[in-house]
Each structure stands twice: as C-alpha cells, then as structure tokens.
Design a protein around this nucleic acid. Structure first.
Length: 315
DNA sequence: AAGGTTGTTGGTAT
DNA sequence: TATACCAACAACCT
C-alpha cells in the first residue's frame, strides 16, 4: 500500500535508473492501465486535459518511441515522469501498483515490488513495460488493476483533478512549516464534523497520508482516530501535522513499509513496520508507551489501530 | 466461502 | 453549494 514514503522511495529509485534513458518501445498488456490525454500537445501552453479514453495503445506506443526521461517528480502519492518534447507520464500505484526496473538478466530494480520482484518479468500482474535504449526495462505491475499511467502533455499535469485539489506536502523544510500548517488548518477546518482519521486520509486536506501513517501519527499525537475534527484544538492539529512528517521521515529512512518481500532499489528491505510502527497491525500487542493492549476497530471505513489508554476520544 | 483489504472516485444523502 | 458517507473498482487472502 504505497503512501508518500513508499512513492518517494520509488521515485528516488526510478530517478537513479531512468533519467537520461531513451524509450525504444512500449508494451501495453492491459489497455485500461495506460490512458491517453487526447488534447493536442500544445508545446508551452496548458490546455484543459481531455477525459482519458481507453484503447489508445497504438497511439501511446507511437508517442513514446524515442522520448527521453528528463525528470521524475512526486506529488502526494502520485509519480510524474517528465519526458522530452513536453510529454509526461503521470502514475498512481493505488494499492498494489509497482514500478520495477530491470536490466537484461540482472536481478536489480527499483520500486515497491512484492513477490513478482523475484520472479521473471513480465508476469501475470504486469500491465505495461517500457524498453530503454540501454537494455533497461521498466515494468508497471499491478495485481488489482486499480493503478494507472496517464500519458499527457506536461503542461496538463497540474490539471489532473486529484493534483488540482491536493493539499500541501507534509514533508517540508523547517522554514516552510508555518505556511504548510496554515493551509492544512484552513483545509481541515472545513471538515469539522468528520473524524480526524477521515480528515487526514483526505488528500485535499494534506497530501500523501494513507492508512499506515494515519494510525501511526494519531498514536504519536495521542488522538483517538474517531475524534471529530471540531473537538481538536489548533495546537493539537499543529502537533499532529508535525507527527505526520515525523513518522514519514522515519519511514523514508527505513526504506518505506511493506508486509512482505519488499526490496528497494539497492536490494535492501523497507522495514519501517518492523522497526518503527507502534500500532499498525499490532492489535493485541502492548502499547509501547503505556503497556495497554492495542485495539483494532473500524473508522472511516478503514481498519484502524490505536491504544485505548493513551488515545482517549473527547466527545 | 463470504468478507476483509487497500486509495480514489462518483453517486446519493444531509 | 458544500460536506458527509459509502459502494464500486479487481484480485487475492483468510
């Protein structure tokens, strides 16, 4: 379940292997996984992106031929591969998407791989493959097919609805924290009646938080996940935003989170969950702060882990 | 074997 | 008009 730290880990790995590489061929195994913005590529100008129709494999492969990867960006949980000639590929991994890089015959890669990393690729979860002039190959695998790639003019990227509405990045330098917090506070105060967990999962309020870092940051902040936003003070919200950044930094340092078979770009495991997670998937274990038993409940339609002693709900 | 799991969208209710 | 809530999406796991 890639959240901000996992997507940033993927971004970093892809950057190392792909920037400067030229695409020689694209193979689309599942047409719904690769969509095309049919707007004319208006070099330099930004146009309203068209809806993304399916069944454009031929057109997509034709456009990608001989394009070079110039830059790889991330915004929230979205990846953006900027190519030459004003084209970009926006990518969302959703729950099970992976970006795996391989050179011919070698067992190295980047991304958020699961079992398929150690198997031969492409496998049955491979939806798209890009071949590069050097012999390197990028595989977009996605077991559940919720993820997508979108090929579009670079200037239209910012108008992808999810990006257009996306809240501030939580991982900012110290000197930018005040403005990030101001935007976060303004956003979250428009959702006073919802639970705090639901609010921080909302990408329009703050970018990049998913189920793991929601539970971990709320535990760090001693806030019960079901607490209504209205009941939480500005000061406590500020502390929560700081803790979101803290748990994400810890995770980045550990190479991200995964429950199984995670191997990152240099072959090491991403073991945030084992090393740092205090509550996520630790139900029935003692709280590391007070010793009470971690519970699992449902909040905002999600499995939610918390300590019933140090995260008391104020009603 | 039915229900849970994940992130986002889109429909409906408030 | 804005916000709240939840089913749907696909495939696998328990």
């Amino acid at each position: 379940m890639p959240e901000l730290p996992e997507v940033e880990t993927v971004r970093h790995g892809l950057e190392k292997f792909l920037v400067g590489e030229k695409i020689t061929r694209a193979v689309i195994f599942n047409e719904k996984s690769f969509l095309l913005d049919n707007t004319e590529n208006s070099q330099g100008k930004s146009a309203k992106p068209e809806i993304f129709p399916e069944n454009n494999a031929a057109k997509i492969t034709q456009i990608l031929e001989n394009k070079e990867v110039v830059k790889i960006r991330r915004r929230g949980k979205m990846l953006i591969l900027d190519l030459s000639e004003n084209w970009s590929i926006a990518a969302h991994l959703k729950m099970t998407g992976q970006m795996v890089v391989r050179s011919s015959g070698e067992n190295w890669g980047a991304g958020h791989p699961n079992e398929s990393f150690v198997a031969d690729l492409p496998d049955r979860t491979t939806r798209v493959a890009l071949d590069f002039a050097s012999g390197t190959r990028l595989f977009f695998n996605d077991q559940r097919k919720f993820g997508w790639l979108k090929l579009m003019p670079t200037n239209n990227i910012a108008q992808i609805p999810l990006l257009e509405k996306m809240g501030p990045e939580p991982l900012v330098d110290q000197e930018n924290f005040a403005s990030t917090y101001a935007i976060f506070l303004k956003n979250i105060r428009r959702h006073q009646k919802t639970s705090i967990k639901s609010a921080i999962l909302n990408q329009e309020i703050v970018a990049g938080v998913g189920n793991i870092y929601a539970d971990e940051s709320l535990w760090s902040s001693k806030i019960h996940p079901a607490t209504k936003v209205a009941k939480i003070s500005d000061t406590a919200l500020k502390n929560l935003l700081k803790n979101i950044a803290k748990v994400m930094r810890e995770s980045l340092a550990a190479g991200g989170s995964t429950m199984k078979n995670y191997v990152n770009a240099d072959g090491s495991r991403g073991d945030y969950l084992e090393k740092f997670a205090k509550v996520f998937r630790r139900e029935n274990s003692p709280c590391p702060r007070c010793g009470a038993t971690i519970q699992k409940i449902r909040v905002a339609g999600r499995g939610t882990h918390f300590c019933p002693k140090c995260q008391i709900e104020r009603k």
